[in-house]
Simulated assay, not measured.
Amino acid sequence: MTEKQEVERKFLVQQLPDLEQATKVRIRQGYITQTDDSVELRLRQKGDNYFLTLKSGDGLVRSENEISISAQQFDQLWPNTLGQRIEKVRWKGQISEQLQFELDVFEGSLAPLQLVEVEFSSVAQAEGFQVPDWFGDDVTLIKGYKNKALATQGIPSLL
């Protein structure tokens, strides 16, 4: 099991960037935990790879434990996520030499939502991040934009 601390900021997308140099993968994920649980237990299919992930914490820094599972294990657990699923296309590209973006274009009931995430090596780096022009509002601290909330409650409105 891989355990790490994740320092990440999440933004709405103001306009799509040039994605010619980016890579893309189709993702479907579902949540086994209940909406009000303080931890997230997530199943994810990312292309031909399958994962079971446990996330905890709130805000800028969260704990993440992830293991690879087989397609058979994924298929066995997938029915437990009914009503708590999302599908999206993820574009991954470079912002700078040190930073990458992950741009999620949601499908189904969450379309046309687009979110972009950037992972940092430290809180100081995250706080000093110069936001590109194509990024929209910072929604890092808005719980309704966490994938689990999107899977169970749909797209929130910005306050």
Score class of each variant (00 low, 15 high):
Q5S: 09
E6T: 00
R9K: 14
K10C: 12
F11Y: 15
L12M: 11
L16E: 13
P17Y: 15
E20A: 15
Q21K: 15
A22D: 10
K24R: 12
K24M: 13
V25Y: 04
R26T: 12
I27W: 10
R28G: 05
Q29N: 12
T35N: 12
D36Q: 12
D37P: 05
S38E: 14
V39S: 11
L41H: 03
R42M: 06
R42N: 04
R42K: 11
D48E: 15
L52K: 02
K55P: 00
S56Q: 15
G57F: 01
D58T: 14
S63I: 02
E64H: 09
E66D: 05
E66F: 04
E66K: 09
I67W: 09
S68I: 06
I69G: 00
I69K: 00
S70V: 07
Q73F: 04
F74V: 04
F74P: 03
D75Y: 01
L77R: 04
W78P: 01
P79M: 13
P79F: 06
N80S: 10
N80C: 10
N80W: 01
T81P: 02
Q84N: 07
K88V: 09
V89N: 10
V89Y: 08
R90E: 10
W91D: 04
K92E: 13
G93K: 07
S96R: 06
Q98P: 00
L99K: 01
F101W: 02
E102A: 13
D104R: 08
V105P: 00
G108N: 11
G108I: 11
S109K: 15
L110T: 07
A111H: 13
L113E: 06
L115G: 09
E117Q: 10
V123H: 02
Q125I: 05
Q125E: 15
E127R: 14
Q130Y: 03
V131M: 04
T140H: 06
L141F: 11
K146N: 14
K146A: 12
N147S: 13
K148N: 02
A149E: 09
L150S: 08
Q153E: 12
G154W: 10
P156K: 08
L158Q: 07
L158K: 11
L159K: 07
